[in-house]
Write a protein that binds this DNA or RNA. Structure first.
Length: 554
RNA sequence: GGGCGAUUAGCUCAGUUGGAUAGAGCGCUGGUCUCCGGAACCAGAGGCCGCGGGUUCAAGUCCCGCAUCGCCUACCA
């Protein structure tokens, strides 16, 4: 609807320009929005005021000219008003709104999707937690946001690839292996010095126990070097297996787990460094190699090869991103914890050096989560190893409530996650509010069936029965859904969907309370059944994007 | 010290990229139920959009300064 309107406006302005009424070169971007106030119409346009300054003329006059030259061949407009300083307010013909329901009926499960990103390949890299311990609650938020961003992009026509980057190289791996080895020795009665640098969690002891079960005390005698390799590999594999399993139960599935080791295997990092050196981005100082990230707006230059000859994590990361682009992705989306925000300019410097535009990389920052229980903070210190794992949270509050709660805020704002609230099956828990609307409609459908109604399609109903203002409001809200999906795809903000869902559910509950869907009047009942069915389609499609179930019964 | 971000109702937060009289949920006050699922609905109270300047037809939104809070500031990953 919005698109059609913009088209009309563009044509009108073009006509004005041809007639010499307006002097414009390029067609300006025309903004059409839904006004807050209903009396201001269904849509409102501000173009005349934007044009006024460049034309040096009264915006109301310009608005008049634009309105005069609108050629509404489909009679979609009931009324056009010029208001205030120069707003052009459009009132859409009621029948046009209801006609949109045809699209819902035809598209069904696909309603809400579009081809915005057709032909574009996007990679979303998320979670990417180090395989040094199980996923905790902090990772869960990033996991859901990444997953849903990917879903949204997919439904708007992008070809999407989900990837998890495994940091399985570097010193932390040694620390992990050593931690497990020490616990193993401890298990066998040795005195150990378990330094605070080591991973403290209970799972380290469990890993040591598993190894003991399998190999007995065989590594007591063997050299540390042999033991370290076996212990490290065992630990990483085992932890990674657990991570994948946890993500799976959370509904998060990746196309690829990319190992950092791969980058070193075929000399990716070395080649990259040579390339950067050739392009003149590298200099030597204090026996280390530095990348001139300040050329790209970073606050200081960064080391890529240390004094001891080892490349840094940053060097590997640039190589990793080069690898991503070489795989043909037009856009790469990284989802990071907000504590990494200082890393952003560096990464952009990296991709600039690779010859990529800024648009080729998008970074979503996810703020940390404060875990609460009935309003009281739950301790989450990683140092002591007593964090709350993703699995524990999902087990306790369920997948739907957990996912939905992580999507209720902008990703870059703090989130309080209250275990008791998330579990509660009450009006304090928005996920049930939305799911309830879906279950309620399903229940109406069941009753309709009992009363021998066929569930109507668009062709089976007479639109004249839909006369109530709230029926138009509901239809408009349904019609807005594809715009909401597109909008959240454009700015990568999944939380817009939960807000939308809340509004739609609220409108439905209100309608339901005031009006009967199934009545003695067959024509009216059919029309309303169809409207309500359309709402259910949208609820279901939106919930599917969020990875939350849409239950028929609750 | 420098950098990044935040500051909107009692609380937790939205605010469609600069639009008309700033919204939602919770909480609070008062109501609705013979009826398709009360996990629901309706009404009301509640605001100096942190403070001060600026930009323009128009600022919660953009720019500058200040205050408070958080994060970053490794030849760790």
């Amino acid at each position: 609807m919005k698109k059609k309107l913009i088209e009309l406006l563009e044509n009108s302005i073009r006509t004005c320009s041809e007639k010499g009424i307006l002097e414009i070169g390029e067609l300006p971007f025309i903004e059409v929005e839904i006004p807050r106030e209903e009396s201001h119409g269904d849509y409102s346009c501000t173009a005349s005021m934007v044009l006024a300054s460049s034309q040096g003329r009264n915006p109301r006059k310009i608005a008049e000219q634009i309105v005069e030259n609108i050629h509404d061949s489909n009679n979609m407009l009931a009324k056009i008003e010029i208001a205030g300083p120069g707003f052009i307010n459009f009132f859409i013909e009621k029948s046009m709104w209801f006609a949109l329901l045809k699209e819902v009926d035809e598209m069904g499960d696909r309603y809400g999707g579009s081809n915005l990103g057709k032909g574009k390949k996007v990679q979303v890299e998320f979670v990417s937690a180090n395989p040094t311990g199980p996923l905790h609650i902090g990772h869960a938020r990033g996991a859901v946001i990444g997953d849903v961003v990917a879903n949204i992009l997919e439904s708007t026509g992008y070809s999407v690839f989900r990837e998890y980057y495994i940091n399985d190289a570097g010193t932390q791996m040694d620390v992990l292996g050593r931690s497990v080895l020490l616990r193993y020795l401890e298990l066998l009665g040795k005195e150990i010095d378990f330094s605070p640098e080591c991973y403290q969690g209970e799972y380290v002891k469990e890993l040591a126990g598993e190894i003991f079960k399998e190999y007995g005390d065989e590594y007591l005698a063997k050299g540390e070097k042999d033991a370290m390799k076996v212990f490290t590999d065992y630990a990483v594999n085992s932890i990674l297996y657990g991570i994948k399993e946890d993500l799976n139960t959370f509904g998060v599935v990746f196309d690829c787990y990319f190992s950092e080791k791969e980058l070193y295997k075929d000399d990716g990092v070395t080649k990259l460094l040579a390339e950067l050196q050739e392009k003149g981005f590298i200099y030597e100082e204090g026996n280390a190699l530095w990348f001139k990230t300040t050329d790209f707006g970073d606050e200081k230059d960064r080391v890529v090869v240390r004094e001891n000859g080892e490349p840094t994590y940053f060097a590997a990361d640039i190589a990793y991103h080069r690898d991503k682009y070489s795989r043909g992705f037009d856009t790469v989306i990284d989802i990071w914890g907000a504590d990494h925000h200082g890393y952003i300019p560096r990464m952009y410097a990296g991709i600039h050096a690779l010859g990529k535009e800024k648009e080729a990389l998008k970074i979503i920052l996810v703020q940390l989560v404060s875990l609460l229980r009935a309003g009281k903070p739950v301790s989450m210190s990683t140092r002591g190893g007593e964090f709350v794992t993703l699995r524990e949270v999902v087990d306790e509050v369920g997948r739907d409530a957990a996912r939905y709660n992580f999507l209720m805020r902008r990703s870059d704002s703090h989130l309080d996650f209250d275990l008791e609230l998330a579990k509660e099956q009450s009006n304090e828990n928005p996920v049930y509010y939305v799911q309830y609307a879906h279950a309620r409609i399903s229940s109406i459908m069941r009753l309709a069936h009992e009363r021998d109604y066929n569930i109507p399609g668009f062709g089976d109903i007479d639109l004249k029965f839909l006369t109530l203002p709230e029926e138009i409001t509901l239809t408009k809200e349904i019609a807005r859904f594809p715009e909401v999906v597109e909008g959240s795809a454009r700015v990568l903000e999944p939380h817009r969907l939960t807000f939308y869902l809340n509004e739609l559910a609220s409108l439905f509950h209100s309608y339901y309370n005031k009006n009967r869907v199934i009545s003695d009047d067959p024509g009216l009942s059919m029309a309303r059944l169809f409207l309500v069915k359309s709402i259910r389609t949208v609820l279901k499609n939106a919930l599917r994007l969020l990875g939350v179930s849409a239950p028929e019964r609750m």
